[in-house]
Amino acid sequence: MINEIIGTILICAGIAFDFFGVLGLVRLPDVYNRLQAATKCVTFGTAGILLGVLIIQGFNAFGIKCIIGIIFIFLTSPVGAHAISRAAHRAGIKLTGESIVDIYAEDKELKESSTK
């Protein structure tokens, strides 16, 4: 009984954070800011949902799959965000107009001008 209550609370919190992540995906200006919201909130929210399922189910075949899911989400989600943002920057997508500094682009120009 108490397991089900804790698990349901965790699942609800996870869904709430997933919702914030999706809201950020719609509201924030450029691809980098959107990735920030998407990776942080969606990783944590989905991990919360899986943890809730684990607590409701207990350590049976179902629950152990949840643990594996949590581990792989934590390992792969930041790597995916890193790959997408790097590819976006290489493809020449500019940061939004509100941005104040882009040292990455400056360093790249410096490198290109020194090799020419």
Partner: peptide, 19 residues
């Protein structure tokens, strides 16, 4: 997560991005 939730729910989107 609470930081992102605060930014996303704030009506003015208080961000100052950069690399």
């Amino acid at each position: 997560n609470f930081h992102v939730a605060y930014i996303v729910l704030h009506p003015d989107l208080p961000i100052k991005p950069g690399i």
